[in-house]
Design a protein around this nucleic acid. Structure first.
Length: 573
RNA sequence: GUUUCAGUAGCUCAGCUGGUAGAGCACAUCCCUUUUAAGGAUGGGGUCCUGGGUUCGAAUCCCAGCUGGAACACCA
């Protein structure tokens, strides 16, 4: 009897033992000479059957239909599923039918096998591998969630989000669309890489561990470097490092940056996420807008062969050019207020009229941002560049060429969400120092998102950075749009989850080892004490009282415990 | 963090006006030589998330906790 295994698991372990006694290694080391894949066979068999007379395919058994001396299994390999047909008397030509009866028929859903044979079409019209020989490649000890489907319907889909995310391997096995999403994710990243490489930009790697978490406004994760005895931060952005490289003379650099932000989690936020950042010398944000829209359109066409894609209830058209609207125009358009010339008090008044909550720490920039996100953001379903943000909101962005209160910045909004953020980068070191100092003042005012000052970055700017435009594209969100995934967890292979609680249970022998008599073990478990550690953490008198109390209550036929006995259990480590 | 919903067999779920835990798939044994969400027969399988409370009696009602989802908040 086993506490930790279900009936089905026990049966599978017994099968494993039975295979061993029959001389079958359930986990062989040998290379298996796969020479064909399910999708390839299904696609090409009818036009070139001669190529599939000796195939060797490996995969996981996903369904079994055993009909006496004949059986049909479905094998799933990396590209799909294919049916295999096995006839007892072919794999067991002699009197001894045990290879079929005691091995092949005993295989389970989830086992990984290899088959050699030829491809044919059944009476039902299904392309199938006729098995001449099979090899067990890996025995599965846990039952797989069984998902069955016809063309139009799926039965008993494995849907519990917690289990899907915690056990992504299972999700990938039984939910084929999940695999497709992650294939598309990689295609998107490859497409971006191709696009930039074609233009001669250099993919680089910059520090993830930073001593000053700069380049964005967010709370960082802190860690500690023992040898240097300093705190280090997981990067919240890589922007300042890429700009240093532009100072260093690269013309264009980009990085797919895994960023870490110690903030809330929800449908669109994960503590670690991927942002692609690109910096190109001698360009401005107008150029960058064009570059971004061309890229996004290209990704859509590569993935879907069209610029129009379904995202939730909306159809989004990524056909260039995308709409462009300044943030102040957007606010004017959606609220009727012209906030372009307003000071802090006037903006607060507008917020009150619009029933937007404000607090003391908010400056002009933040107030405008607040008005925009409350009243405008959700209107931009189709891709739209929102441009020319107020200067207070953008401490790393160059002042607007025609209005010193604004910056040359744009955000790309899609489906009411920000997808990209770009600047004509601030390269005036004196202005940059002032802006950082302004951030410092905000910090003192209580704005905990204000940026830290990176002195080395300022020094780099003082050596001179060419006019540069930079962009950050949220890769996870882009993938969400492109794959119509409603949650960021659907586009991250292993989204962050609270760790599972391990319910440790000590074996009876472990209790006996420290001197607990067998009769008392069930009573101890009854008290909710399942490990030696738990037991040792309980005071001797409490244990003594509880156990004797239990003895009385449950009328246990054991001699009453002596306190000394309890003490002896807890004595040594 | 707040609100709200959910947690029952390996999976999907029913049971929730308190009274002996159920179905389908999966699993086991048997029948079946081209089947297909195969079929037929029989059978096994449960810490009803955990801990308290109310009650003669709790999967069911109440409280607390754990985990997850959704919305909001925070945050790009």
């Amino acid at each position: 009897m086993s506490l930790e295994h279900s009936e089905q698991e026990i049966i599978r372990r017994e099968k494993l033992k039975a295979f061993e006694t029959q001389g079958i290694n359930a986990y062989p080391a040998d290379e298996y000479p796969v020479n064909a894949y399910s999708m390839d066979i299904l696609k090409n068999f009818e036009t070139q059957p001669e190529s599939y007379q000796e195939v060797c395919v490996a995969g996981r058994i996903m369904s079994q239909r055993i009909m006496g001396a004949v059986s049909f299994y479905e094998l799933q390999d990396a590209y799909g599923r294919i049916q295999v047909y096995t006839k007892r008397d072919e794999i067991c030509p002699d009197e001894d039918k045990s290879l079929y009866n005691l091995v092949y028929k005993k295989l389970d859903i989830g086992d990984i096998i290899g088959v050699k044979g030829f491809v044919f079409i059944t009476q039902m019209g299904e392309i199938t591998i006729h098995v001449k020989e099979f090899t067990l490649l890996s025995k599965s000890l846990r039952p797989l969630p069984i998902v069955k489907q016809t063309e139009e319907k799926t039965y008993d889909a494995f849907t519990d989000p917690e289990q899907r995310y915690r056990m992504r391997y299972l999700d990938l096995i039984v939910n084929p669309h999940v695999k497709e999403t992650f294939i598309q994710r990689t295609k998107i990243i490859n497409e971006i890489r191709n696009y930039y490489n074609e233009q001669g930009y250099l993919e680089v790697e910059t520090p993830v561990l930073q001593s000053i978490p700069g380049g964005a406004a967010a709370r960082p994760f802190v860690t500690h470097h023992n040898a240097l005895d300093i705190p280090l931060y997981l990067r919240i952005a890589n922007e300042l490092y890429l700009k240093r490289l532009i100072v260093g003379g690269f013309d264009g650099v980009y990085e797919f940056s895994r960023n870490f932000r110690n903030e809330g989690m929800d449908r669109t936020h994960n503590p670690e996420f991927t942002c692609m950042e690109l910096y190109v010398a001698y360009k401005d944000y107008q150029w960058m807008m064009h570059s971004v829209e061309v890229l996004i359109e290209r990704i859509s066409v590569t993935l879907h062969t069209t610029t129009k894609i379904q995202v939730g209830d909306a159809v989004i058209d990524f056909k260039t050019p995308f709409a462009r609207v300044s943030i102040l125009d957007a606010i004017h358009q959606h609220t009727g207020f012209d906030v372009s010339a307003m000071n802090e008090n006037q903006l607060r008044d507008v917020c009150n009229q619009l029933k937007i909550e404000t607090d003391e720490s908010m400056g002009v920039g933040k107030l405008i941002d607040e008005i925009f996100s409350e009243t405008c953001e959700h209107h931009y379903i189709q891709p739209t560049f929102i441009m020319d943000y107020p200067i207070e909101m953008s401490p790393l962005c160059k002042r607007h060429r025609s209005n010193p209160k604004l910056t040359e910045r744009f955000e790309l909004m899609v489906n009411g969400k920000e997808l990209a953020n770009a600047y004509s980068e601030l390269n005036d070191p004196i202005d940059q120092r002032n802006r950082f100092e302004e951030q410092l003042r905000l910090l003192e005012k209580g704005d905990d998102e204000a940026m830290y000052i990176d002195q080395d970055f300022l020094r780099a700017l003082e050596y001179g950075m060419p006019p540069t435009s930079g962009v950050g594209i949220g890769i996870d969100r882009l993938v969400m749009f492109m794959t119509n995934s409603p949650s960021i967890q659907d586009v991250l292979l292993f989204p962050q989850m609270k760790p599972e609680k391990q319910i440790a249970v000590a074996k009876d022998e472990e209790f006996e080892k420290i001197g607990v008599s067998k009769a008392w073990i069930p009573a101890i478990r009854q008290l909710g004490i399942q490990t030696i550690t738990d037991l040792k953490a309980t005071s001797d008198t409490k244990l003594f009282n509880d156990l004797n109390g239990l003895r009385k209550k449950m009328k246990l036929e054991i001699d009453a415990l002596q306190l000394d006995e309890v003490k002896s259990w807890l004595k040594n480590k």
